[in-house]
């Protein structure tokens, strides 16, 4: 569905996107994860024909994004960071004109608009001015606009930025439903770690305009970080003895605490506790720490996404 080779975009001296090779198969749900300014949105803007690449090529839905812009545009849906619906318009009017833009007849456009208004729960607000809608309602309207022509491939740029947790969860549900029903290929950018983690089967981590990791969330975590088991003891002497008992796991001791780096910690922990009890120095407390995508990002770049990305305001959103 998407195939890029050496996709690059320079803005003056800034290498916003620096040689991205990416293949997305039909039906995939892919999240581009990275801090603000990493090049996610710029990549998306090239794939959606909004800006031409400085070098490299991209084929989207079977067509080149530079030479066959129109063919690409006919086949994709795009939900940008802003509001697709004009603020002085009414939601239903915008949906119908969006349908007309994609070549639907007046009757079909009306019918399609009505269906989407219904399925996205916009019936009460569709005939009001867009400027009077809440942030969550506007975002749902944007989603409806992007779906008017039932595209096979949908791009979403930071879909849940600026929404409260409840609206975010609601939106994620809509996106997953859409995929389940129509097998739409979905590419979204996000700097919310939990969003990438819970929605995407494939996470592409981007930093400084390059892809630095590309795999399922579970495999990224297992490969780059792994689990940790932390065991607490009543006394340092017991902890020291436990170190010997568990030598096979290569624990690190710090006072009365042991830390074990491993894979599949939840399955190992009961056995470990049994071993310790049998050896006569049972653990007083036990904790399993599973990695997050932030740990993956930290491992790969030495920086945390939480500090550098999610907390930042929208003013820093890249060009």
């Amino acid at each position: 569905m998407i195939e890029t080779q050496g996709l690059t975009k320079h803005f003056k001296d800034v290498r916003a996107v620096d040689g991205i090779d990416l293949t997305v198969a039909p039906g995939e749900l892919v999240a581009l994860l990275g801090p603000n300014g990493a090049g996610k949105s710029t990549t998306l803007r090239m794939l959606t024909t909004l800006i031409p690449p400085t070098s490299g090529t991209a084929r989207v839905a079977g067509f080149d994004v530079v030479r066959h812009q129109r063919q690409v545009r006919l086949r994709i849906g795009y939900i940008g960071q802003g509001n697709g619906a004009g603020h002085s318009q009414r939601g239903r009017d915008e949906l119908i004109s969006q349908g007309r833009a994609y070549g639907l007849g007046v009757k079909d456009a009306r019918a399609r608009a009505a269906t989407l208004i219904d399925s996205l729960g916009l019936a009460e607000v569709a005939d009001r001015r867009v400027s009077s809608l809440s942030g969550g309602q506007r975002r749902r309207l944007d989603i409806a606009m992007g779906l008017i022509h039932a595209p096979d491939l949908l791009f979403l740029d930071e879909p849940s930025t600026g929404l409260d947790p409840q609206n975010r969860a609601n939106l994620q549900e809509h996106i997953l439903d859409l995929r389940a029903e129509h097998e739409t290929t979905i590419v979204l950018t996000t700097h919310y770690l939990d969003e990438a983690d819970s929605m995407a089967e494939r996470v592409i981590v981007i930093d400084h305009g390059r892809i630095i990791a590309d795999d399922s969330p579970a495999r990224l975590k297992a490969e780059h970080v792994g689990d940790r088991i932390i065991l607490g003891f009543d006394a340092e002497t017991e902890a020291a003895r436990a170190t010997t008992t568990l030598a096979a796991y290569d624990p690190a001791r710090e006072g009365a605490r042991l830390t074990i780096a491993t894979q599949g910690a939840p399955r190992q922990l009961p056995g470990l506790l049994d071993d310790l009890r049998a050896a006569g120095h049972p653990a007083a407390e036990a904790e399993v720490i599973r990695p997050t995508l932030d740990d993956v990002f930290l491992k790969l770049t030495g920086r945390s996404l939480r500090e550098g990305g999610a907390a930042e305001t929208r003013e820093l959103v890249e060009v």
Partner: peptide, 17 residues
């Protein structure tokens, strides 16, 4: 100008219009 700020112009640029 206003529609460039809010995002609806960008949305129209992505359509096949």
């Amino acid at each position: 100008l206003f529609e460039i700020q809010t995002g609806s112009h960008e949305r129209m640029l992505v359509t096949p219009l």
